[in-house]
Design a protein around this nucleic acid. Structure first.
Lengths: 208, 208
DNA sequence: ATCTTTTTAGCACGAACGTGCTTGAACGGA
DNA sequence: TCCGTTCAAGCACGTTCGTGCTAAAAAGAT
């Protein structure tokens, strides 16, 4: 048998290069040549692991979705393991919602990449399927969280859906502002908005 | 004197072509050649009215900002002309916030273009100045609206800023979802979320 | 040492891009 | 009528892009 390399790890290296390029120069700069240079490979090598440019981008999208959803579900099991109403519970909820925001370097890269792909999916049909999966998975976690946080436990189905969509919209808007206007929307500002929103769900104290 | 055409109107025609292209095919497709074809002109003609591709894009960004901010300020003076607490007042507030969302064809185009330019401004420095102006202008209107809507009239400066940022984030998130996931976030769903958010500001009835 | 298959590297082609520059066409004032 | 400015159109150059294709290098198996 011939030369053996860890194909999975190699693919991940390339995907990491894609992430760095998107975060610093935008998705449109994530061409095969740029990605190859960032990963210290030749274009032909990248194309050995990914059939086409679209294939590379779709796979990168899937990876960032899995990472974000994975963090969210981990954080949600932490929330579930704590008694509601306690300060630990509040802290766990804030930690969960913080996974959406660019609060540190790694989260910022993921948030950039996630936003860029979702926006691109409006135009590029190859990304549409993953975009739908992303939305459904995140909405599911947020929906379960809202059900846990609402005073009546989410008795009214209709009200629950609206509150889930409201929290989801607020999170995406916060993420957008933190990425696009970091001088106006700092991590502290995000925290204030988060607390204020959670207070409107009736659990956390109203007077922040 | 030579041949005279309405240069302002011609420029606006080109900008309209830019808007249509961005809304249907994304900003990266708004090249000089594509724009010229959409406007039924030659590339050289477009370049006669705009010094460069960057010039065209920056001017288009400015136009869409002026349109959106203009609508917002018109709607705000309507809000100001009505007694707070009345149903007309509530209706005027919803009309104002509706200017953010892709509720009809024209609003949808503007929302697409606005989002696309703001995202692009993270990468393209030429767009940064207009992006900042956009954010400041919109935040000013939303801030005044929140001041009018909050029960104590916005006594606490800090609380007022947080609530303005919270409303702004929710609006941008709603706009994003309505554009990217129209099947999950319909106009009706947007209205429900809006009403729920306004209820948390303490003015509108809690029981939608 | 040789073979075989994976891995890496690179070339070449057509398409699309922005832009500098040139060339006609149009048309109001002289 | 003719002039001069403005508008419209197009060519050409250099870059970058994705991709089909070829070929050298690497290394376990024999």
């Amino acid at each position: 048998m011939p030369k053996i390399v860890d194909a999975v790890a190699r693919r991940q290296d390339v995907v990491d290069a894609v992430f760095r390029i998107i975060a610093s120069d935008g998705l449109e700069r994530a061409s095969l040549r740029e990605v190859a240079e960032e990963a210290n490979l030749a274009v032909g090598s990248v194309r050995h692991y990914f059939a086409s440019s679209d294939d590379l981008l779709v796979h990168s999208f899937a990876v960032v979705i899995d990472r974000i959803v994975g963090r969210l579900e981990d954080a949600f099991s932490t929330v579930e393991s704590v008694e509601p109403g306690t300060t630990e519970h509040d802290h766990a909820v804030l930690t969960l919602l913080g996974q959406f925001l660019p609060l540190d370097e790694e989260l910022a890269v993921d948030a950039c990449v996630w936003m860029a792909f979702r926006q691109a999916a409006r135009i590029k049909p190859v990304l549409a399927e993953e975009a739908g999966r992303s939305h459904r998975a995140v909405a599911a976690v947020v929906g379960r969280l809202v059900m846990r946080l609402m005073p009546d436990g989410g008795t009214s189905q209709e009200r629950l859906v609206t509150e889930a969509e409201r929290l989801l919209a607020t999170m995406d808007g916060l993420c957008m502002h933190a990425l696009l206007q970091p001088e106006w929307m700092t991590a502290e500002g995000c925290g204030d908005v988060l607390q204020a929103h959670l207070a409107t769900l009736g659990r956390l104290p109203t007077n922040r």
